[in-house]
Nucleic acid binder design. Structure first.
Length: 262
DNA sequence: ATGGCGCGGTCACCGCGA
């Protein structure tokens, strides 16, 4: 079973890009973030016609929005409103192989890394804190958390650790909360099991660069966290850097894991 | 270079992304 996650920055603009990726990489399930549309305008039949007949979407107007598009049957669909906001940042599905998949779009956090002076940053920290409480030490379930976490936890998850140490996404408080989330499951940052910590790896490059590849000022903001049970079953993890070069790209690229399960 | 680009929408400017 091959599962991908991708911050798509508008599903209506990039549905063709998504389908091309799904076909080329033989993806069974894709989790999307920033679909940026209400459910009524979601291109449901477009994916249905391509064999992805199991879809769970949760959208809102203009902002956020998450979706799970799957060939694998979905048994149960639920969501949680983090921080008491009905803002389409989380959905959860139970698959027919008993794996629970959580698709997250964690708040970006604004400009200033200060919970007293910046409500967006406070929202981000509170959001992760609620995740930690929700997932606290439960070894009985087969769980996967994935999506756009808007945090680059390791030094080689950003183009310059020194220059980004005070930039939201790579600050100590965010990294601390990310690590507490890892510990809460406990979970494994499975992508980093396949890419050495010494290697710089990114999943996002800003639009505001003449040549994203040449400047290569990226960050690894998208993650797949698996429970310990699923670690040994993960046979591959990939970051599709080449996708940043397609026509009308998202500023994020997809990542995937392949599990030795049906 | 505190700029730059791209998305949706109260649609030509603004909020937001990170």
């Amino acid at each position: 079973m091959k599962i991908a996650t991708w911050n798509i920055n508008s599903i209506r603009l990039r549905k063709e890009n998504i389908l091309k990726f799904l076909k080329e990489e033989k993806i069974d399930i894709i989790c999307l973030q920033e679909t940026k549309t209400i459910n009524d305008n979601f291109p449901l039949s477009f994916f249905f016609n391509a064999g992805y007949v199991h879809v769970y979407m949760r959208g809102e107007k203009s902002y956020n929005g998450v979706a799970i598009i799957s060939k694998v049957p979905i048994i149960k669909k639920t969501y949680h409103n983090f921080c008491n906001l009905n803002d389409a940042r989380h959905i959860e599905v139970l698959l027919n192989n008993n794996i629970t998949l959580h698709n997250f779009y964690i708040p970006a956090g604004g400009e200033l890394a200060n919970i007293d002076k910046n409500l967006k940053f406070k929202h981000k920290i509170n959001f992760i804190n609620e995740m930690i409480k929700k997932f606290k030490k439960d070894n009985t379930k087969s769980r996967i958390l994935l999506g756009d976490f808007n945090i680059a936890p390791l030094e080689n998850d950003v183009w310059s650790h020194k220059q980004l140490i005070n930039v939201v996404s790579h600050t100590k408080i965010e990294v601390d909360y990310f690590n507490m989330l890892i510990d809460s499951g406990p979970f494994i940052d499975i992508i980093r099991e396949f890419y050495k910590p010494q290697e710089k790896v990114f999943t996002w490059w800003s639009y505001r660069s003449k040549d994203w590849s040449k400047s290569n000022k990226g960050r690894r903001l998208d993650h797949v966290l698996v429970c310990k049970k699923l670690k040994g079953l993960t046979k591959e993890a990939k970051i599709y850097k080449n996708i940043r070069d397609v026509n009308n790209p998202s500023d994020h690229v997809p990542i995937s894991i392949t599990l030795n399960v049906k």
